[in-house]
Design a binder for these strands. Structure first.
Lengths: 250, 250
DNA sequence: TGGATTTCTCAGGGAAATCACAGATTGCCG
DNA sequence: CGGCAATCTGTGATTTCCCTGAGAAATCCA
């Protein structure tokens, strides 16, 4: 049975709001404008308020005035070392969580201690779903946001825990690879909505992915094997339009 | 997250209005005048206010002054790259959704990232129904429009969900192909109104469709088999004039 | 370092969708 | 009622889209 009698929230997902009901504020700091634009677009789409800065000084200045609830901070800035920015940021806004952007290789040594303070990082090139998910986690745990927002997505008897990365259907645990997990998360954050292959590529794969669009088909195929295997299918193809997920009992 | 369905307007057609009740404003940017004219006509018909521009500079200038709620932007402009226009546009109007027009083959490489922020695209040659539908989706989700407007069309016991692409009659699910879906959407957006074969061809098929006009008859026939099969017919022929859809009980 | 896992490309197969064509049917007119 | 035009629909060719196996390349992990 179709359920056109019901509507999802405007964006088909739970809003993350501050306790007073105002939107979450996020400051994005990166010297590449294409990156700040990409992130701003994606994060605005989450319903958050975004400001961007291109260097350390701009970041600190904007932070003072904007009072963000979270910061996305590139480790490589033209005028200032990422750690320096972090230090000064902490003096102004001690409790604001920071999501670091860092090159793939430069990770281990310098980031290690950083996440101890409740911060987190992603490596470039990242996927938007990953950044959004990490940010949501940070904001949720920092207490800036309404606690109602929790980390478990549920569609039918399918459950996905964004914190523990655990997935189960009908109580049975399912192991997914990182990419499979992100794809499923994206589908489950937009239940009953057709998502085009382009949309999926844009959100789930890294922004610099240059490969064939049929990876999406491939990973849908993998997911089906694990999620739908033998059971009533939840992942559906809309030929010429895209894919969607919905509870089996309909 | 689910809310009860609100009542539909008598004609089953929900107007898309801004919160203050004024009409939605859309900026159309394409260097081919035949395209901007085609689009302007179709979009005005939706009750929206339209402005057109033929190049990047004109687009930015018009955007500043016109403050559109959405932009239709060709990726190929004479003076400026589509991505450049997008970037500058974003600086002025951070929250305005953009619908990109792009050549069919140019998709893979250049589109990357475009749908990331909730934007969307259609490939040339497009059908007007598709452009209108995508634009409505963008505007609805951007929050510029009244949130009550939802994505479900209802005529009698026939329901069509533009988000999930699901169609049902009397609670029974019906599978439609992409073309059947667009045709039915067009009919349902104009209930009780006779639509000529020419109108249907112009709105549902691509603007460069060169085939036989009797595809319309063929697809009406397909639709009847699925929608009306056995039941009281809702799709009616007005010989010499066209077709119309209306609730069965009248 | 070497094996296991994951990611992705490539290509074949197959199913579905689209559409042309033509004969059947229907409605309208005198 | 006969004839004409408009419409309907069965058939099948063609195209498009999607699925998936096989294996190469990259990555992870012990």
């Amino acid at each position: 049975m179709v359920t056109p009698m019901t509507t999802t929230s405007p964006q088909g997902r739970t809003e993350l709001l501050r306790p007073d009901g105002s939107p979450v504020r996020v400051l994005v700091v990166d010297d590449e404008q294409s990156i700040t634009e990409l992130l701003s677009m994606a994060l605005r789409y989450e319903g958050w308020q975004i400001r961007a800065a291109g260097d350390g000084h701009g970041a600190l200045q904007t932070a003072r005035e904007f009072r963000p609830d979270a910061v996305v901070l590139d480790m490589m800035l033209p005028d200032m070392d990422g750690l320096t920015v972090l230090g000064r940021l902490r003096r102004e806004l001690p409790d604001v969580p920071v999501l670091f952007l860092t090159a793939k290789d430069a990770v281990e040594d310098r980031i290690a201690g950083l996440t101890a303070g409740g911060d987190d990082y992603v490596t470039k090139p990242f996927s938007l779903e990953e950044v959004v998910a990490r940010l949501r986690g940070l904001i949720r745990r920092s207490g800036a946001a309404d606690r109602r927002a929790d980390s478990v997505l549920v569609v039918g008897d399918l459950m996905l825990d964004e914190d523990s990365h655990e997935v189960s259907r009908g109580g049975e645990n399912i192991h997914l690879t990182a990419t499979e997990f992100e794809l499923l998360r994206f589908l489950m954050r937009n239940p009953r909505r057709v998502l085009s292959k382009a949309q999926i590529l844009d959100r789930v794969w890294s922004y610099d992915f240059g490969g064939q669009a049929n990876v999406v088909e491939l990973y849908i195929s993998y997911l089906r094997r694990k999620i739908d295997a033998g059971r009533e299918p939840m992942i559906h193809t809309r030929r010429g339009a895209g894919y969607l997920i919905k509870p089996a009992t309909s």
